[in-house]
Amino acid sequence: MNTVSIDFKPFIEWDNNPFILFDNQGKILYLNNAAEILLGYVSRKEIFELALSHAPQSYGFQTAPVTLRYDIFNFFSVTVGYENEEQLGIRLYNAPRIRNQSPVENDKLVETDLNILLEANIALFRTRNNNKLELLTDPDLPKLKIDQNTFSKLLRKVFEAFRASDSIRIELKMLVGEHVIIEGKKTPLALLSVSANGRYVDTDKQIVEFAESCHVRYYLYEKSVKLEIPLLS
């Protein structure tokens, strides 16, 4: 098969798996769209070191199974390769995400200002925790359709995990460039992140239950909980 005349670059550019090409000093020569988003969550240096540690001993390409987690990104493998001394490439393979198959119950969904729901839940939380709390929200976040009662329960359970925490930081923002497919529709996402010096895990089971019921993707870390909220319209 003759591939000489085919321009492969757009295929790499639009690949969901991040790809980065470094020079021998770790400077980025090229990165695709997925890598651009990834670098919002992990440093260039860390990825370069990852590439160096998985680079083959001589010219060529090497794929290694690795379990990597950078915030909301999970990877199960990397391919690292070089064909000269000047350029080193790395491709990270996204771990498959379990897709929520449960149908969206449209009759339960009500158009909602997420900031109001969040503020009401913070007020509830403040009746139990007076520690310092930092809140960063996007007031221009578009309204979304959501089951308000179930989603409020989800927020309550998330906040309960931080009931004795210090230095709590809550951030609500649009996930620019990221989408989720729900019932065949490309749906934009908002990210709610709650982090602190530590947290309880006794509400995790209910967080999972309520999140799945609302088609919200959840990330439960040692010191933070992140929710990817589909902005259904």
């Binding site: 503020e119 009401a120 009746t127 308000q148 009662n149």
Partner: peptide
């Protein structure tokens, strides 16, 4: 009371929401 003020705030915010 700060705690009760937060309850007032929370309930007032839910005036426009269908929540229990």
């Amino acid at each position: 009371s700060d705690a009760v003020k937060q309850i007032v705030k929370g309930l007032t915010l839910t005036k426009s929401l269908y929540v229990s």
